[in-house]
C-alpha cells in the first residue's frame, strides 16, 4: 500500500511513452511536410510531460529546467517550421 503513488506514476509513464510512439509513427508515415510538423508538435508537448514525470520519479529538480528550455525551443521551432511551410523564410 505504501508504494501505491509510485506505481501509479510508473503506469502513467507507460501511457505517455505509448503516446510518444504513436506520434512517432505519424511522423514517419505523414504524407506531407505539414503532417510531419503536426506530429512533431504533438511529440514535443508529450515529451515535456515525460521529462517532468522523470523528474518526479528520479527526484531531481534539474529536469524541470530541462523541460522549460525544451518547451521554449519547441515552440520557437514549430513557429519557424510553420513560417518555412508558408514560404516566409
Amino acid at each position: 500500500m505504501d508504494k501505491l503513488p509510485e506505481i501509479i506514476l510508473h503506469i502513467s509513464t507507460y501511457f505517455v511513452s505509448a503516446g510518444i510512439i504513436l506520434a512517432t509513427l505519424r511522423l514517419i508515415k505523414g504524407p506531407t511536410m505539414a503532417d510531419r510538423a503536426v506530429a512533431l508538435d504533438t511529440f514535443t508537448v508529450i515529451s515535456i510531460s515525460l521529462i517532468v514525470l522523470i523528474a518526479c520519479i528520479a527526484g531531481r529538480v534539474i529536469f524541470l529546467d530541462v523541460g522549460m528550455v525544451y518547451a521554449i525551443l519547441s515552440f520557437i521551432g514549430v513557429v519557424a517550421v510553420a513560417r518555412y511551410i508558408e514560404g516566409g523564410l
Binding site: P5, V16, G19, R26, I46
Partner: peptide, 21 residues
C-alpha cells in the same frame, strides 16, 4: 491525489496521440 491526477492526464495524452495517428 497527485498521482491519480497525473494518471488522468497521461490517459488524455495517450488518446490525443491516438487521434493524431
Amino acid at each position: 491525489l497527485g498521482s491519480i491526477i497525473t494518471l488522468l492526464g497521461s490517459i488524455f495524452l495517450f488518446l490525443g496521440a491516438l487521434g493524431v495517428y
